[in-house]
Design a protein around this nucleic acid. Structure first.
Lengths: 238, 238
DNA sequence: CTTAATAAATGAATGGCATTCATTTAGTGG
DNA sequence: CCACTAAATGAATGCCATTCATTTATTAAG
C-alpha cells in the first residue's frame, strides 16, 4: 500500500473531476458504504408499491426496483433475502389498509360484510400476492396478524364458538381470495363462442345474466356468495 | 443438386454410418422434419403432467419439458405459442377429472357437494394454474366448458333462477380456488409465535381449534364454508 | 411428375431474470 | 486505535422463455 495518507475527516469538498452539477443527474454514488444509509425495508416497500402501480407485477423486478431507488440490484440484498421477501413486505403493508373498523362498532354480520368487501377490493389489484399470502406464516406479517386479531375478537363477541372462529375466518378468506382473481377476469370470459350449441344450459345462463343487470358480474357473484356465507355461518352461532 | 436419384420408397435399411444400437441412447435425431411427427399437444400435455408430478411447477420449464420428450426446446413452439399455452392444456386436462357425475343423479345439494370437493382436491395439487384459469376464456378450454355445462344444467333443474346460475357457480368456484391454496399451507401457519400476547383472541381461537379435532384444518374450513354456501344459495331458489 | 408451399424438427442466438461474490468504504464497540 | 460489521458497487453466474435461420419431409397445385 502506498504511504499517501488516507484523509481522516472528509475528502476535499470539490474534486478536480466534476463540480456538483445542477440536480439533473445527481452525481453517481461511488462504491462503498455511503455516509447515510440509502435503503431500509420501508423505503424498499414503498418503492415496490410505486413500481407495481406504474408497471404492474410484471414490472416488479429486482433490477427495476433497484433502478427506481438509484441503487445497484445487489444492494437490495442487504435488506431482503429474496424477491419473495419484497412481496411479503408489500403484502403486510396492504393488510393494514383493510378496513376492520366495523368490528366492535356494528353488528357482527355488517362488520364481516365491510371487512370482506374491503379485503377483496384491496387484493383484487394485487392477485400475484395471493399465492404468497396463502402459505405465509402469520409470524412474518404483523399487520396481517393484527387484522386476524380484530376479526377473531369480533366473531367471539358475536357468540361464535371458540373452536369455529378460525375455520370461519379461513372459509371467508378463501372466498375472498378466489373472488379477488375473479375481479381481474375479462368481461367476455364466459362467452362460449362457437361451442354455444353444445352447451345450451350454460349459454342460456350466461345470456340471462348479461341481459339482467348492469352491475359488474364479479360484484354480483361476490355479493351473492358473501351473503350466503354470512347467513350460513351465522346459523351456527351459539 | 447432385443427380443421384432420391429413393422414392424407403432409404436403405442400414446406413454405413451406424448400425441400430441397442436401445440405450437411441441415436440422436438429425435436423429437419422427422418421418413421423414426434410431438403433438396430447404428447406435450402428458409429458407436462408427468414432469409436474416428479418436479413440481418449479421444475416445469420449457427446457425440462423438451428434455423429457427428447426434443429441442424450440420444437415445442411448433405446437404451442407459449408456456402459458402448456399450462392451459394441463388445466383443461385436469378439468375433465373433476367429478360432475352426481348432477342429474342426486339431489342438487349433494351433487354440488361432490363436485366441489372433487374440484378442490384436483386443483389443490395444481395451485399455480389458478391464476391462469381465473382469467381464461372458456372458449380456450373445452373440457372446462363441459364441466360448467353439467353444473349449469344441474342448477337449472334444481329450480335455480336462470339469472342467478352463473353467479352461483362463480361464487362456489371462487371459494373452491381460494380453498385449494389453503390445502397447501404449512400446518403451523397460524402459530403466532412471539406475538401471542398481543393477539389474545386470535391465539385462543387457534389453540381451541388445535385442541379440538384431528381432522385437517383445511378440510374443516372447507366443509364449513361449503355447507354455508349450499344452504345460503339454496334458500334463494324459486 | 414436378414443384412450390407448408410442417416439424435442430441448433445457435438473445435479452432478461434473481442471485452471489469480491471489493470498497463508513460507522461502531471493545 | 483497531477489529468488526454494515451497506454500498460492479462483475459475474446460471437459468429462463422465446426467436430465427436452417434442414428435412410431407402435401397440394399445376
Amino acid at each position: 500500500m502506498p504511504a499517501a495518507a488516507r484523509p481522516n475527516t472528509k475528502p476535499p469538498a470539490v474534486s478536480h473531476e466534476a463540480a456538483p452539477r445542477a440536480a439533473a443527474t445527481p452525481a453517481k454514488r461511488r462504491a462503498g458504504r455511503p455516509a447515510t444509509a440509502v435503503l431500509d425495508q420501508a423505503v424498499i416497500t414503498s418503492a415496490a408499491l410505486r413500481l407495481i402501480g406504474k408497471s404492474g407485477y410484471d414490472g416488479l423486478t429486482m433490477a427495476a426496483l433497484a433502478r427506481s431507488l438509484d441503487v445497484a440490484p445487489s444492494a437490495l440484498y442487504n435488506h431482503v433475502a429474496s424477491k419473495r421477501d419484497v412481496l411479503v413486505l408489500v403484502e403486510d403493508h396492504l393488510a393494514a389498509l383493510v378496513d376492520v373498523s366495523a368490528f366492535g362498532a356494528e353488528p357482527w354480520d355488517e362488520a364481516v360484510r365491510r371487512w370482506a368487501w374491503s379485503y377483496r377490493d384491496v387484493f383484487s389489484k394485487h392477485t400475484p400476492l395471493i399465492p404468497v399470502i396463502a402459505v405465509l406464516p402469520v409470524t412474518d406479517a404483523p399487520q396481517t396478524l393484527a387484522m386476524y386479531e380484530a376479526v377473531s375478537q369480533g366473531l367471539r363477541e358475536a357468540g361464535f364458538p371458540e373452536e369455529r372462529i378460525i375455520s370461519s375466518i379461513v372459509a371467508l378468506e378463501s372466498f375472498i381470495f378466489g373472488s379477488a382473481f375473479d375481479v381481474t377476469a375479462p368481461a367476455d370470459i364466459f362467452d362460449p363462442g362457437s361451442m354455444a350449441e353444445s352447451t345450451p344450459s350454460f349459454t342460456a345462463a350466461v345470456r340471462s345474466l348479461a341481459d339482467q343487470g348492469h352491475e359488474k358480474p364479479a360484484d354480483v357473484a361476490f355479493g351473492l356468495g358473501l351473503e350466503a356465507l354470512i347467513s350460513g355461518l351465522g346459523a351456527l352461532r351459539r
